[in-house]
Design a protein around this nucleic acid. Structure first.
Length: 296
DNA sequence: GCGTCCAGGTCTACC
DNA sequence: GGTAGACCTGGACGC
């Protein structure tokens, strides 16, 4: 048995562009039916201590949420939807910044810039580790294995991302053999142990008072997290000072702005410096401009 | 079929 | 602080 409720959305919110803002929609436990405009997400409820699955569709001015169980905790489900689609994030300042620069005014026009994220910082951190030094297909494979082999099932059978406790209960050998995480395996175990024991609380980074450079240093203390991974996670925390440069982003910049020739990162940094604390988001939008067609 | 390269990088040792 | 080499995996590519 399931139930349904609605959530109003901000005026400058685009469901399709938020979901498709980057590759997260393609990683379990997200499932995206683009034709039907339907996003499904499963999460582990801290209220019911069970996995819950929600399906989100867009209606004019609001989102409709269908749940996998009738007893789901609605306030928590609402909070999860607001969090993953960043309904409470105020991008007014960002839109004002990009609107004053030629070639970037489309961002406000199509309401781009809200980056899809997972229900917890823990989940985003692990997924970000899964993106390092590998192809996208391997990232998908590792996250699929994590969910299928360690996640708890909701009423409809869909599985949530595993908790730190579930991962801490495994071993580096399990990660090598079953998750196919290779040399990253001990990093996952160390991180899970640290979160499960309470020594590390990634969720606290969401409302940290630390200036971004210091928070970045904190995040980089996690083994396996370097410059790219830290900046990527910071973007998901709502801090866009860093560019989160990886091989795809660099190649995209060379193609668009440097006559397809490689250059050092300082040149890329200079190109987006004018956007100040929004430069990471401005660059991401710039590099993914063609993803949504019909812009010009 | 086989070998090589490299991808949404990071760590460690060394200078 | 900067750099070289090692590190898992799996898909793409050339032969």
């Amino acid at each position: 048995m399931s139930n349904t409720f609605t959530i109003p959305t901000p005026e400058d919110f685009s469901f399709r562009r938020s979901v498709g803002s980057h590759g997260w929609y393609d990683l379990m436990p997200f499932e995206y039916d683009e034709k039907r405009g339907r996003l499904t997400y499963s999460y582990f409820s801290s209220v019911s201590r069970c996995a819950e699955a929600i399906t989100i569709t867009r209606r004019s001015g609001s989102l409709t949420v269908n749940t996998s169980s009738a007893t789901i905790d609605r306030p928590e489900a609402r909070a999860v939807v607001r969090h993953i689609l960043r309904l409470d994030e105020d991008l007014k300042e960002f839109y004002e910044s990009v609107s004053s620069h030629d070639g970037f005014d489309w961002i406000r026009r199509i309401s781009a810039g809200r980056l899809l994220r997972s229900g917890t910082v823990w989940e985003d951190l692990v997924k970000t580790l899964c993106t390092t030094n590998c192809s996208w297909s391997l990232t998908k494979s590792m996250t699929r294995n994590l969910v299928e082999k360690l996640g708890r099932a909701a009423a409809d059978g869909r599985k949530a991302f595993p908790t730190a406790e579930a991962i801490a209960a495994t071993s580096a050998e399990f990660f090598r053999d079953e998750i196919r995480a290779g040399y990253r395996s001990p990093y996952f175990i160390e991180l899970a142990n640290s979160v499960a024991s309470g020594d590390l609380d990634p969720e606290s980074w969401l409302c940290s008072d630390l200036p971004t450079p210091e928070l970045r240093k904190e995040i980089k203390k996690v083994k396996g997290v370097g410059d790219y991974a830290a900046d990527n996670l910071l973007k998901l925390l709502g801090r866009y000072d860093g560019l989160a440069l990886d091989s795809w982003l660099r190649a995209s910049f060379y193609k668009r702005h440097n006559r397809e020739k490689a250059c050092d990162d300082k040149k890329i940094e200079r190109h987006y410096r004018k956007f100040g604390k929004w430069k990471g988001l401005a660059m991401w939008c710039d590099m993914t401009k063609e993803w949504f067609g019909e812009i010009e």
